[in-house]
Design a protein around this nucleic acid. Structure first.
Lengths: 340, 340
DNA sequence: CTGAAAGCGCTTACAG
DNA sequence: CTGAAAGCGCTTACAG
């Protein structure tokens, strides 16, 4: 192990700098020497040391991925592999490698990001979440590191590049869908209020309720984790109410699955006694019984576009921030019904 | 951006080498100067350049992940995020970062691996699959790169470190489970025969069939992709037979889901007309209707142990190869029934 | 079109 | 316990 540019230079009888230029396919080198150098590389089985190159020219051809904290839980939600699939596809097209953080707590992840950035391991980052007070985002902004966020930044969204659905509109449409079916007691089950996606969808829900001249009910808005367990908790809370809702907007399929199972255990049948519309439209939405009507948010595309934007930013400095809206679409299945 | 060891050295009035030793917390430096240097680092907001360190000491604190080809498809199977969760947890415990390949074809992935290795981007690799003729594995062996495989290597398994279930036994037990229910016409639906996991489970199936003195039927063994589509194809093949099987051993839950859906479409009910036992025990096994009896192979643990072994190998050279068996367990649900 | 030299930011024998 | 110097394997002005 250890064929270097020098060995190639010796064999090809040129200077190391020439070899370097051949690797970069510089137009200033004659075809003849290029050939000679290349065959020397071939003969020796030379492969460039990317680390050394990175140090010299300050570029890594790698992008970093920042997961939300509690990665452990994140991986349980099918959103993640799907967005990763989009990211991976985009990175592959642009010949970039992916570098992943593995921290569990917010603090650890912050440290990792600093190390990625200052350690010059990556040329830029994609944040796989967007939350209200994010020290990581602030850090990246301050240090002028190229980054893009999947989701809408809470603040300064006009100067930050991001890829997102129109979650306000999606939340509104989902709610209107239930309103159109005649429901008037509609509850909202979302994730943490720290997550911008929750805020946006909730705002859309509010708007729809308000436009329909229905009373706003505090007790109809629940926040839990984007996991089955979260859905379960939410149902328990809602069913203690005197005036139970007849329909639910659930901000995540996995959560909706928990809702469904818990309702089932309690003998409440969907969609007869309760209508449900959820978000993401991952495989489990289709598999659930009844199959879930769900808002398809095009997760793959979110990841794919995020990487494209990031690489554009890395390649052309001082680019203006770019905002990309990925369209959504309600996919109707069997979890909603007209109210009697 | 750009505080270096030199800046720190100047401020602390020591040599750069001393700063370096303080970073490494060398015992040869007095507490007094350590303190001085550390406060200088603090004051300047110093963070080590990991790339430079890697170049100097030839270590990266990162591990590489090699996906099976067609990563695009792999990400659709819930096996992947779960094994990644284990890997991420293990990597995090040992403070290693994860580097992911993004290639689509075998050729591309091979190139990426060579670049990771020769480019010194990673200290070692984990292969997330095991197949019959794997040039990547051969390459890593030849170049003495630390690596571990999730799954059993086809050849030289005694000198390669790997983490796997006892898939022979698991395949045998799954088949015996059906035999015990009185089934005699049992088919096997597996993945590509290039994958060792398929071979092992199939061999176990064969063994069980043989031990039960049942005839071996070529037409009862089908190979498809580990996707829903694969399950669908398999069912279409099996149902053309004159003597249809009454039970199926399916080597993957996602595939089993495809089987289930296709049988449903054809009006064949599970478990009344057909029993199914599958593998992996991911969420969809539990969600399927009927819920699938599935062999839990402890995917998280496969990933977690793989990383632990890898890091052990990296840290202690010339270690003997290690083989780890992760236990499996049949989880009974509603997809199997005694034959009438 | 090509080469000699400096530099990227660290680490690590070697010397004292 | 600390420092001066060489080196890790590249790239890139500068010079010719």
């Amino acid at each position: 192990m250890g064929v270097t540019i020098k060995d190639v230079a010796n064999l090809a009888k040129v200077a190391p700098s020439t070899v370097s230029r051949v690797i970069a396919d510089s137009s200033r080198i004659s075809e003849k020497t290029k050939k000679r150098v290349r065959s020397a590389m071939e003969e020796l089985g030379y492969h460039p040391n990317i680390i050394a190159r990175s140090l010299a020219n300050k570029t890594t051809e790698a992008i970093g991925l920042v997961m939300p904290s509690s990665a452990d839980k994140v991986f349980q939600n099918p959103f993640f592999p799907e967005v990763l699939r989009g990211i991976s596809t985009g990175a592959h097209e642009k010949k970039r490698a992916i570098y992943m953080s593995t921290g569990e707590t917010e603090e650890e992840i912050f440290t990792e990001v600093v190390q990625m950035v200052q350690g010059r391991r990556v040329d830029g980052l994609v944040l796989l979440y967007s939350k209200v007070d994010d020290q990581i985002l602030t850090y990246l902004q301050e240090h002028n590191v190229p980054f893009v966020v999947v989701g809408k930044p809470f603040k300064h969204s006009d100067v930050i590049t991001y890829v997102d659905n129109d979650n306000f509109k999606a939340g509104k449409e989902a709610t209107e869908y239930l309103l159109d079916l005649g429901h008037e007691r509609i509850a909202f089950i979302g994730g943490s209020l720290q997550l911008v996606v929750t805020i946006d969808r909730l705002t859309g829900y509010d708007k729809a309720i308000q436009s329909a001249n229905l009373p706003y009910r505090d007790e109809y808005v629940i926040h839990e984790e984007f996991l089955q367990e979260g859905g379960k908790e939410a149902v328990h809370e809602l069913l203690t109410l005197k005036e139970r809702p007849t329909a639910l907007v659930v901000a995540d399929d996995l959560m909706a699955l928990g809702v469904l199972n818990t309702l089932g255990e309690m003998g409440i049948s969907v969609p007869e006694d309760m209508s449900i519309i959820s978000f993401n439209n991952v495989l489990i939405a289709e598999m659930a019984r009844p199959a879930l009507t769900s808002v398809d948010i095009n997760i793959f595309e979110l990841g794919y576009q995020a990487v494209r934007c990031l690489i554009k930013q890395i390649e052309t400095p001082h680019l203006f921030a770019e905002q990309i809206r990925v369209p959504h679409k309600i996919v109707q299945r069997q979890s909603c019904k007209k109210i009697k």
